[in-house]
Design a protein around this nucleic acid. Structure first.
Length: 954
RNA sequence: GGGGGUGUAGCUCAACUGGUCAGAGCAGGCUCUUUAUAAGGGUCAGGUUGUGGGUUCAAAGCCCACCACCCCUACCA
């Protein structure tokens, strides 16, 4: 058994309770409890009261399910900004929010009710259940967000289901009504037949589907045997056909075939002839666009005619070059119909059955044999399709029929194919001229995008411009229960009544009672409450059942949150600047979503954009750089669910946050075990560096021991100069929201300047100098400053670890690093002094390689076993060492026992390494020729004798 | 199909927006150290800058085409 010999002489070895092992998974929850008990968020608010305001406005996540790792990324990025601004002295409150209404919750809840046997719940009770459901998930998610170390007003978040929020949203809506933005119109929407409701885009799933496609002959008027040939995959829409579109850039040919003449687009002629089984055909002549536009055709089985219209959406990859147009059943069709003045004719009722409407005279509409036939498909067949096909056959209009596989939208709940169906809906106008604005609303929005908002990255501007340029009028009504009601009434004739005063009265009611009041109060009573005093219009007999699109909910947050919460106001600012948020930050999909809805609503209702800067991040992808999908879960894919909690359980919040910071979030963000592990390595490097600094401050009291700047040793001034440069870079990177640059700069500084250089060199003085020596205290002064500021710079990323380390800093100013203020700029060093140290460190590099060679040759082990001879000309030596102080500095930098100069011819200093002379001092491990010269300490060098006699550290 | 992005060593990021042999850190190999020790130091190796063309005295960066992936949109009558 060997045992370590007892040390006879003391050294100032590092001591600290700051653990090497992070144990984040166990330690972080304890820290959270501590913060909660002390109301740290409240303390920070109090500490920043009156300071310049910085407002990041939270985009509300949907209150459903666990927090996904992608949602965590979004939240952490926001928190990085808020914490950075806070540590830099801003008052940066964070009010988190949740998006609470919408179909996913309603659907889940009705499903649960049905499973519990309740099949006839009324609107009010469904809504109550939805409310409870949303709140349950808000609580769940709130816990998970807090666990990530995100600070905010968690006790008082904004919820789109709060009655105050709903009332403010309707207040904004009332302004829009007043300004003439809102109208009722008919438009094709996605329609789910089983649910008898319109669906939002997000509620549509695309699945493979086989449609019965048909080639149909449309006979030209006055030409008994000449046909325009159209192709469609939805025969049931033929009763709604009102026109045919062609593309004016194609050439069309009139061809003679046995049995008749047809017009077909040239690029598709050969395909069509093959499909229709034409034995031979003869091209008579080419028809041009202006000629086609003159043509009129007879509907194959309805008693009416239609015209041909040019349209650029007609393609030549499938079909015939002629597209059957039913304005009631398709977006392109609808737009074309609007343009050329066709009615929005949709002979399909709520149940999905063919039925005549009032848009056209009955005799021009579908024949009686079609009425009542259902459009809903079962096993790729529907009664309506069959009946139409039969009718086409009977009329000899069916040229060809074939199965056509393609992806087709399906209702995400009922899994049935969706139909496009025109129904009455509420819309917000985009192209009307706002009184006093002088340009259309769309143009105003585009101008605002271009000149009043900063987009980061800059291409974000293109994204949202494209979205605003191309968007149609905004369909804002949903036939749903779980949402904010549209406070419209209907008179005895079924005509809608919507007016700003009515909406404001309804808003006041809802502010008092919550939006259930709209559904639970009898219509007559409701009208009494909402009827304006001087009302002269028709009296209402029914209330509207529609709710607002959920994008109106979240898009109203500028009014409902920013304008309504005084803590989010910029004191001293006026007008829009008072309530405008400094930053919105969401995924790039929100250019078309929340960024757009917020911009349009705020611009229309408040007269200004709700944000000054809009930041976007990319999406999370897996290690194959493919999007994270649930189908990859389990075998062959991810082993574990991609929730935030899962990663926290494995790595801790600080490592997860550091990983978020390390990624350039403007692009796709790859999440993989490998990357998390790598970041974990960096975390350990940083933690150990902090630990080294803290452990060497165990006997340092800044009030008593700090050394003034002018008296710091050159080495310490050098590192503090480097550190100042780092601070400036880190501050600039944070300020530009480039956290990955912060991460890189900090990690590299810690690894290179600190760990490999400064900390390594300075060990000797810290451990072996007399405790109170100016040189040791100087270095401790530098360490103290750096560890303080490192904690501050790290605090936005390493929320828990920075605080943990902070508590070990002697004489720290504030209780929490998160309440402290960081001011970059530690010490300024002259260029000349800096250059001198750059030269010395370069020489150190030159010495390291020969030292390594000597180590390989077993001449030395550690560097202190060596002596170095620098051979150079006298002039070279003088340039490196003008005042003779460099020799000792270089000896310390290289960590060698002896260093001497030798005059030689070589210009670049030549480095000769040999075994050091003398005997190794037992205490400092330097090799010296005078070890033992003090008789009382035979194993020590005289320097160590002095240190030992000076006493031990406290 | 249309629009918007991205593609630099195993990983994360640089490269002053055409100009010194494309740089760091981490990881990896070898090695020293037992006074940061479930730590720390040294050293070595690693890239035809997605592919193929082009412009230029000069390209990772500009132009064209293609490939892969991400976001939005149309998913086609």
């Amino acid at each position: 058994m060997s045992q370590k010999p007892e040390k006879k002489y003391t050294l100032n070895l590092p001591r600290t309770e700051f653990a090497m092992q992070a144990n984040l998974v166990q330690r972080e929850p304890q820290r959270l409890a501590q913060w909660e008990a002390a109301d740290l968020y409240g303390q920070i608010r109090a500490a920043r009261a009156g300071k310049p305001k910085f407002v990041l406005h939270d985009g509300p996540p949907f209150a459903n399910g666990d927090v996904h790792v992608g949602t965590a990324l979004n939240k952490v990025l926001k928190d990085l900004i808020v914490k950075y601004k806070t540590v830099r002295g801003y008052d940066a409150p964070y009010v988190p929010g949740w998006d609470c209404h919408g179909l996913p919750i309603e659907s889940k809840v009705t499903q649960e009710l049905r499973a519990a046997g309740n099949t006839s719940a009324d609107a009010a009770s469904i809504r109550s259940a939805c409310d409870a459901y949303a709140r349950k998930y808000i609580d769940l998610q709130r816990g998970q967000f807090k666990r990530l170390g995100v600070f905010g007003d968690w006790g008082n978040p904004y919820l789109t289901l709060d009655k105050g929020y709903e009332a403010a949203e309707l207040g904004l809506f009332a302004d829009l009504v007043e300004k003439g933005f809102v109208y009722r119109g008919k438009k094709p929407v996605y329609w789910s037949i089983p649910f008898k409701t319109a669906l939002a885009e997000a509620e549509v799933e695309y699945k493979d589907h086989i449609s019965q496609s048909v080639y149909v002959k449309f006979r030209l008027k006055g030409e008994p045997n000449t046909y325009v040939l159209i192709w469609t995959t939805t025969p049931w829409t033929l009763p709604a056909n009102l026109a045919v579109a062609f593309n004016p850039v194609y050439h069309y040919s009139l061809v003679i075939v046995e049995g008749g003449s047809y017009i077909v687009a040239n690029p598709l002629l050969s395909v069509v002839s093959e499909k229709l089984g034409w034995q031979s055909y003869q091209i008579v002549r080419t028809l041009h666009a202006d000629e086609l536009a003159q043509l009129e055709y007879e509907h194959p089985f309805c008693n009416r005619t239609g015209r041909l219209h040019p349209a650029d959406f007609v393609t030549s990859d499938t079909g015939t070059g002629f597209v059957h147009i039913a304005p009631g059943h398709g977006a392109d069709d609808y737009q074309l119909g609007l343009k050329v003045g066709l009615p929005v004719y949709c002979p399909v009722d709520d149940e999905g059955r063919l039925a005549p409407t009032t848009d056209l005279p009955r005799e021009q509409q579908l024949p009686e044999s079609l009425v009542g036939k259902s459009v809903l498909e079962k096993n790729n067949r529907s009664d309506a399709n069959d009946a139409v096909l039969a009718l086409l056959t009977e009329k000899q209009a069916l040229a060809h029929r074939e199965d056509y596989p393609h992806s087709y939208p399906h209702c995400w709940r009922s899994k049935t194919p969706i139909v496009f169906r025109a129904v009455d809906q509420w819309f917000i106008r985009i192209d009307h001229t706002v009184p006093g604005a002088g340009s259309t609303f769309r143009q105003t929005a585009l101008d605002t995008i271009a000149s009043a908002v900063k987009w980061v990255p800059d291409w974000g501007q293109n994204r949202i411009r494209g979205a605003v340029e191309s968007r149609p009028d905004w369909c804002i009504s949903r036939q749903r229960t779980w949402g904010v009601p549209i406070p419209a009434f209907y008179d005895a004739a079924g005509e809608p009544i919507l007016n700003a005063d009515i909406v404001r009265k309804a808003a006041a009611l809802i502010e008092e009672h919550g939006s259930n009041v709209w559904f639970a109060t009898p219509a007559a009573e409701l009208w009494k409450q909402c009827r304006p005093a001087n009302w002269s219009g028709p009296e209402a007999v029914a209330r509207g059942q529609d709710t607002l699109d959920v994008w109106i909910d979240s898009g109203s947050s500028s009014r409902a949150v920013l304008a309504r919460r005084p803590e989010l106001h910029h004191p001293g600012a006026s007008g829009a600047a008072l309530w405008q948020a400094d930053v919105y930050l969401e995924g790039s999909d929100q250019h078309r979503g929340w960024f757009q809805s917020s911009l349009l609503l705020s611009l229309a209702g408040n007269g200004a954009a709700p944000f000054k800067t809009v930041l976007t991040h990319g999406f999370m992808v897996d290690e194959d750089r493919e999007k994270i999908s649930k189908s990859k879960q389990g075998e062959g894919g991810y082993q574990k669910p991609q929730t935030a909690d899962r990663y926290i359980k494995d790595y801790g919040a600080d490592v997860l946050r550091l990983w978020v910071a390390s990624q350039d979030y403007r692009n796709d963000i790859v999440v993989s075990e490998e990357r998390l592990k790598k970041v974990g390595e960096t975390y350990r490097l940083i933690r150990n560096t902090l630990r080294y600094q803290l452990s060497n401050l165990f006997d340092f009291d800044p009030a008593r021991d700090a050394v003034p700047d002018a008296e710091l040793t050159g080495l310490d001034r050098w590192i503090l100069g480097e550190f100042s440069a780092l601070e400036a870079e880190v501050d600039a990177a944070y300020n530009a929201f480039e956290f990955h640059v912060v991460y890189q700069k900090l990690a590299q500084f810690v690894a290179v300047q600190l760990s490999a250089t400064y900390h390594d060199v300075v060990k000797d003085r810290l451990y072996t100098d007399p405790v109170n020596s100016p040189r040791r205290r100087s270095t401790q002064t530098a360490l103290h400053r750096m560890v303080t500021r490192l904690c501050q710079m790290l605090s936005p990323m390493l929320v828990f670890t920075a605080e943990e380390a902070w508590e070990f800093i002697p004489g720290r100013a504030s209780g929490s690093v998160h309440a402290s203020e960081w001011t970059p700029g530690t010490v300024s060093v002259s260029d000349a002094e800096k250059a001198q140290w750059v030269a010395r460190l370069a020489l150190r590099e030159d010495m390291l390689k020969p030292l390594e060679k000597a180590r390989q040759e077993k001449v030395i082990g550690k560097a202190l076993d060596a002596q170095v001879t620098l051979r150079a000309t006298a002039a070279v030596r003088a340039s490196v060492d003008p005042d003779g102080t460099a020799t000792l500095a270089l000896q310390e930098l290289a960590n060698v026992s002896q260093l001497t100069w030798e005059v030689a011819e070589t210009v670049a200093p030549e480095v000769i390494v040999s075994k050091a002379a003398g005997v190794k001092c037992d205490r400092c491990w330097h090799w010296e020729t005078d070890v033992g010269s003090v008789a009382a300490f035979p194993e020590l060098c005289p320097r160590c004798v002095k240190a030992v006699e000076a006493g031990t550290a406290a």
